[in-house]
Design a protein around this nucleic acid. Structure first.
Length: 427
RNA sequence: GGAGAGUUGGCCGAGUCGGUUGAAGGCGCUCGCCUGCUAAGCGAGUAAAGGGCUUGAAGCCCUUUCGAGGGUUCGAAUCCCUCACUCUCCGCCA
């Protein structure tokens, strides 16, 4: 969320930022409502001040036994209250409309973000590793997995529906091994591990920006809870409505959770395999940082996420998203893409964003630093996948496949696989 | 699920026969004094959000906020209702 005053006072810059994002936002309504709101506040507050004054006087008059004078004042306040009620009802409505509008404006892109329309304007930052070459036509994980008996797409559909996956045997083991591998790696590098709820309330989803604008992307329970689409939601909201001490920053958090997405609007995209499913596992990284350090923390977060791929020996590239391709809450985003032979392309496996103070303002996450400044200031929040586990499974199966249909287990993972070096067909 | 207790400022914690209580006191923090250093001590200050005036900055005025919402009243942290959450006891249970 952006502040109403900030938008009002920087209207041209905000307009330009929205143009850069190719986002549409109703500036005209905002300016009108904002003006109306401030006018109403003035009218309400003048009357409240008079009421407070009169009430004080009444208290004094009653003590002195001057009942008649007190009654006259009471009558005046009653009249003021009638007026006040009408103005307050109006103000509440306008206030809500302003807030609703502000909740739907996306974050401002950081100055370092390239301006562009869509994913074609994203800029590659670096590459690591070499995509494997095969002396035979490599198979996709959606073929290899079922042939090995470790991924069962058909029964996943039977159990739950389209875009749900069932894994068994070494497939399930690989999933679990990756989760532990990633968590161990991140915790060894200073991230604190959490085990959060995977259902969250509306305030939590509003805090990170999924609500109110993207409710269609979420699974919702009958009593108003949401299945989290990412652990970012709960990890970032851990400190909602809190004031943190500066010396405790940056906070670096990690968690493994299942993630749930409706994938509404992505019909026809990535329909094969386990690239785009309703339920997937992810190890998430979240940081709460001081504003002046948040950009450095974004860079190091990308390094933390890519280290997973390097340890696994998977080729990847890092791109910086252009203004037109960034998510709602992000001020700057790096995507990490892993090489997938089935796509003969790099495919997103992590997205690392600095959300600046956008989420912190929604969720009211502040910090204080006595001696440096008075009061408290908003922190910056960052999040990134470290990594999406299902896509990592797919990448390993495809990149480490052998001519005989078996899959070599990356060395770094073998301790987590009970020493298994090769995955072969099983029943 | 049943019964009871509770929810106050960065933190702890007072505060009901409703009226300068935005809220005692303490901790923490800031500034000053004192002190070979440190510690201790003394004095002053220290909530947030919103609106307005002014501005280089500071500042000033007003409003709101004592879990959330609603009600009673001229006036509510204080009384009433609803809801949420926390704790204790009972029941049930992976």
């Amino acid at each position: 969320m952006l502040e109403a005053r900030f938008v009002r006072e920087n209207i041209d810059a905000v307009r330009r930022a929205m143009d850069d994002r190719h986002a549409v936002w109703d500036f005209e309504s905002f300016l009108l409502l904002d003006e109306e709101r401030r006018t109403l506040i003035g009218k309400v507050e003048v009357r409240q001040a008079r009421r407070n004054e009169a009430s004080r006087l009444i208290g004094g008059l009653m003590k002195d036994g001057l009942r008649d004078e007190a009654e006259a004042l009471k009558a005046e306040v009653r009249a003021i209250n009638d007026e006040l009620t009408a103005y307050e009802v109006h103000l509440d409505r306008v206030d809500e409309e302003v807030t609703d509008l502000l909740m739907t404006i996306p974050n401002l892109p950081h100055a370092s973000v390239p301006v562009g329309a869509d994913e074609n304007d994203n800029i590659e930052v670096r590459r690591w590793g070499t995509p494997p070459e095969f002396e035979y036509p490599p198979k996709a994980h959606w073929d290899l997995g079922p042939e090995l008996g470790i991924i069962d797409f058909e029964r996943g559909v039977k159990l739950a529906g389209a875009r749900f996956v069932l894994m068994g045997g070494m497939g399930a083991r690989l999933e679990r091994a990756l989760i532990n591998f990633m968590l161990d790696l991140h915790t060894s590098r200073g991230y604190k591990e959490w085990w959060p709820p995977v259902l969250a309330n509306g305030d939590t989803l509003r805090g990170t920006g999924q609500l109110p604008k993207f409710e269609d992307d979420l699974f919702k329970t009958s009593d108003g809870l949401y299945l989290i689409p990412t652990a970012e939601v709960v990890l970032t909201n851990i400190h909602r409505d809190e004031v943190l001490e500066a010396e405790g920053l940056p906070r670096r958090y990690t968690a493994y959770t299942p993630c749930f997405r409706e994938e509404a609007g992505s019909a026809g995209r990535d329909t094969r395999g386990m690239i785009r499913v309703h339920q997937f596992d992810k190890v998430e990284l979240v940081k709460l940082a001081r504003p002046e350090e948040s950009m450095d923390e974004l860079e190091s977060m990308v390094a933390d996420a890519t280290l997973v791929l390097e340890k696994l020996g998977l080729a990847y590239r890092v791109i910086v998203l252009c203004t037109g391709d960034m998510g709602f809450s992000a001020a700057k985003t790096y995507d990490i893409e892993v090489w997938l032979p089935s796509y003969t392309a790099y495919k997103e496996i992590s997205s690392c964003s600095n959300c600046w103070d956008f989420q912190a303002r929604r969720a009211s996450i502040k910090y204080r630093s006595p001696g440096e400044f008075k009061g408290s200031r908003l922190v910056h929040t960052l999040n990134g996948s470290g990594l999406a586990v299902g896509r990592t499974v797919a990448a390993i199966i495809e990149n480490y496949q052998q001519a005989d249909g078996s899959v070599v287990v990356p060395e770094a993972l073998r301790p987590y696989m009970g020493g298994v070096e090769v995955i072969t067909a099983e029943i």
